[in-house]
């Protein structure tokens, strides 16, 4: 493995994009940073600007109002990048899915390519870390 690919695996930076979820998933993501789960052991960091990120974490059922902004954030993440959809909401609308529901898109699929889906409402931090690791492995294969 080349050093570049290795360092991609070793230093994934996350940007957390909240797309209208209930906060349940979001606090579980933050819990993964807290002392008990401490993802910094593996060099994972949460960054403040999408321009610095490698992995985009998406939570929530994508309300239509936030779509342009979400797409914009996705475009701002420099290549190579990986998108991880966290929670049942981001995987397909979850509990908010209803054919009648005009307010949400349900899943960001049509907006951006998703690499990893983590179902659960909310998934536990362990599951989130596992999903991020899958994302990292995918990231190392991208050029």
């Amino acid at each position: 493995m080349s050093l570049l690919k290795k360092s991609r695996i070793y230093s994934p930076w996350l940007y957390h994009l909240h797309c209208g979820g209930c906060n349940g998933c979001d606090i579980e993501i933050l819990a993964a940073l807290s002392p008990r789960f401490d993802v910094e052991r593996f060099g994972i960091q949460l960054v403040a600007s999408p321009r610095h990120a490698d992995i985009l974490l998406i939570t929530g059922p994508m309300p239509k109002q936030i779509l342009p902004m979400a797409k914009r954030v996705y475009e701002q993440v420099p290549d190579p990048k990986v998108v991880v959809a966290i929670g049942s909401c981001a995987c397909g609308g979850g509990i908010f899915y209803d054919p009648e529901n005009y307010a949400i898109l349900g899943t960001p699929d049509s907006l951006m390519p998703i690499d990893v889906y983590i179902p659960g409402c909310p998934p536990k931090p362990e599951a989130i870390i596992n999903g991020i690791v899958q994302g990292i492995l995918k990231l190392s294969k991208k050029s």
């Binding site: 290795k6 360092s7 070793y10 230093s11 930076w13 060099g43 490698d54 420099p78 290549d79």
Partner: peptide
């Protein structure tokens, strides 16, 4: 590693 990764982006 962080720096090398950034160079590859």
């Amino acid at each position: 590693y962080d720096i090398i990764k950034l160079f590859g982006k």
